[in-house]
Design a protein around this nucleic acid. Structure first.
Length: 594
RNA sequence: GCGCUCGUAGCUCAGCUGGAUAGAGCACCAGACUUCGAAUCUGGGGGUCGGGAGUUCGAAUCUCUCCGAGCGCGCCA
């Protein structure tokens, strides 16, 4: 088990709370005030010091004191702290803290000691979390639309693991229902084609893609023409199983090339194969009084041409925050997709997950409320389902939209993207947006080697750091080449030599990382890591260039090995955090990019 | 008609779950390479945070309302 690594903001927050408690003990303010709203956060302006707390403003009302007076009292005690250089009261009652340089250097030392475990935390307390993502239908290869969900879900899973949750990555195989039926029929058609029959154009409603040909070919190889003589009821299960196996093998390959390795593939069909788990889940809800037979008003908006008013089996979703009650059975008596999904989520509950995260595409947004309602009903309100909607990806090439024809079965596959730009660049780009913002993905820009391409810019920062180590060989022959050993070696450097404003700014930026990781994990927003890494790289590039104008600021100073060591320690800190963050995102951190 | 998401600089977007004078990149203008990687950096102009009202010490952030865009609205998954 890895210990929680250092987080200087948490340390200072504890100190602020301790001071408040001390003031209560002294009778300055009442006992038992709510300290939960107190925060310590980085300041936006350097003039405001390193970090600021709202403690006085939050406690003032209940304490019966003015925020400024209370702030004075708290600041007075804080300024006596060993880490604090200055505590000032500003504005409506902010307590602005400037830390001693020792605070930053000891944080850097902690970083080097922890290595790429810096930022790792025990926040999640090993709580099981199920993250379900991608879940593409096995009716064809993964296309680019799935990439965003894959990158997002996988990075989120990494992030949660990094912050101490027990994560299961899950892929739901939609291998039941009408679309799979269509796939089976498409496969059978290709089978006849493989046997030499002229099948003409692929009928509407079937899958026209070339990839179905493999199904026909394999069936021919294994069964020659024997399937032709069998009735549909007999050949269909055979074709269906073969088609799903072929498609899933393909999808697993694609996932792997994206760096995604699910822990669990859950088959929708399995819900009804050995015992009817869907019926069981509905019964379970019925016993809780959440299922009834009744009628629904006709759907508003887009007209439903074959609408018939009838009594049906309904889930009382309105009791759990949804807008209408939801049907569980179709008119032919089969289950709706929602019914299967209820059984599926019940399985997650039964497997011990009280925290579930589903990653869905934007077109499923209207489905969120009912699923959350179902989870509430199934768990008696104990479990929580967070649904992350990832918005559309607009594919561009040098600013021009990439044309795709779904009708002809032509689309950009996940494999196409990985082959052209690489999985790392794809993942970073997909994560350089909030999940609920539409994203422009430009094939040309992702490969560009410029500041305009954040993937490159961040990776270049990492490579530049390694370049310094390579150049340090002559001045510091003892410097280990291995990253882990070098971290340990540099942790002993005289860090108190790091006094330049640019150096301190970098140490500050590095110290933000653990706090940022935690907030990103709590918000389920991995894109915050990407933006942070961009800022860190920017700070690093900027400091690098200062050494051009002012040679005494360079990392390697020929006749001063001690300060060189200290500065290399700083570079190592940058390299380590960049590598750590890129690792969480699932993006490689290259040592050189020539 | 209803629900969800979004609306922030000319463009593309951040904004750390309510904090101080709202940030970054691109584009535009002006600068820095006998150099640890100039694939980089420095400086400059540019905003009624879609409009309006409310909540409070304090709102881009929360509530309501209107405007605009995207997605969805039994028997597709």
């Amino acid at each position: 088990m890895i210990n929680e690594s250092s987080n200087i903001f948490a340390v200072i927050l504890d100190k602020v709370r301790a001071v408040s408690t001390a003031l209560a003990t002294e009778g300055v303010i009442p006992n038992g005030l709510d300290q939960s709203r107190i925060v310590v956060e980085p300041t936006r302006e350097v003039a405001h010091g390193d970090m600021a707390s709202n403690a006085a403003m939050v406690l003032a009302k209940d304490a019966g004191k003015s925020p400024r007076d209370l702030a004075d009292a708290i600041a007075g005690k804080l300024s006596a702290d060993a880490l604090v250089a200055k505590a000032e009261v500003a504005g409506p009652g902010f307590i602005n803290l400037t830390l001693k340089n020792d605070a930053w250097t000891s944080e850097l030392k902690a970083l080097l000691a922890a290595g790429t475990d810096y930022g790792r935390s025990t926040l999640g307390r090993e709580e099981p979390v199920n993250v379900e993502y991608v879940s593409a239908n096995p009716t064809g290869p993964m296309h680019v639309g799935h990439c965003r969900g894959a990158a997002f879900g996988d990075a989120l899973a990494n992030l949660l693991k990094f912050t101490g949750y027990k994560v299961t990555r899950e892929y739901y195989i939609n291998d039941a229902g009408a679309q799979i039926d269509a796939l089976a029929r498409s496969g059978f058609l290709r089978y006849r084609e493989a046997l030499g029959e002229d099948i003409g154009p692929i009928p509407e409603g079937l899958y026209p893609g070339e990839y179905v040909k493999q199904v026909g070919q394999e069936l021919k190889d294994d069964y020659s023409d024997t399937l032709l003589k069998k009735p549909e009821s007999e050949w269909k299960p055979i074709v269906r199983e073969r088609a799903i196996n072929i498609m899933m093998a393909d999808i697993r390959n694609d996932l792997w090339s994206l760096g995604v390795v699910p822990d669990e593939f859950f088959s929708e069909a399995s819900l009804t194969e050995e015992g009817d788990q869907v019926a069981a889940a509905i019964d379970f809800l019925r016993q809780g009084g959440h299922v009834y037979e009744g009628r629904l008003p006709p759907p508003k908006g887009a007209p439903v041409d074959d609408y018939e008013d009838r009594e049906q089996t309904l889930f009382r979703a309105t009791a759990f925050g949804d807008d209408v009650d939801r049907p569980l059975k179709k008119s032919d008596g089969s289950y709706t997709y929602f019914a299967s999904d209820i059984a599926y989520h019940k399985s997650k509950l039964d497997r011990g997950f009280n925290t579930m995260i589903d990653v869905w595409g934007a077109d499923h947004g209207g489905y969120v409320k009912r699923m959350q309602a179902a989870v509430k009903a199934l768990s008696g309100g104990k479990a929580n389902l967070d649904v992350k909607i990832v918005q559309l990806v607009k594919l561009l090439r040098a600013g021009e939209p990439v044309k795709m024809s779904k009708r002809a079965g032509e689309f950009v596959t996940a494999r196409d993207v990985v082959e052209e730009v690489g999985s790392g660049a794809m993942r970073f780009m997909m994560l350089y947006r909030s999940n609920d913002a539409v994203l422009d993905f430009d094939f040309v820009k992702v490969k560009e080697q410029s500041r305009d391409n954040p993937v490159f810019y961040v990776q270049y920062g990492h490579a530049r750091g390694w370049s310094v180590f390579r150049n340090a060989k002559t001045a510091l022959p003892d410097l280990p080449e291995d990253a882990v050993e070098r971290c340990r070696f540099l942790a002993k450097a005289p860090l108190n030599r790091l006094v330049d404003a640019g150096e301190v700014a970098l140490m500050r930026q590095l110290a933000l990382y653990p706090r940022l990781v935690e907030s990103a994990a709590l918000a389920h927003e991995p894109h915050r890591i990407s933006f942070y890494l961009y800022e860190l790289a920017s700070e690093f590039h900027a400091h690098w260039n200062r050494g051009k104008e002012a040679p005494h600021l360079r990392f390697i100073i020929e006749n001063d090995p001690q300060i060189s060591l200290a500065r290399l320690a700083l570079v190592q800190g940058v390299v380590t955090v960049l590598a750590s963050g890129l690792g969480v995102l699932g993006v490689e951190a290259p040592k050189e990019m020539r």
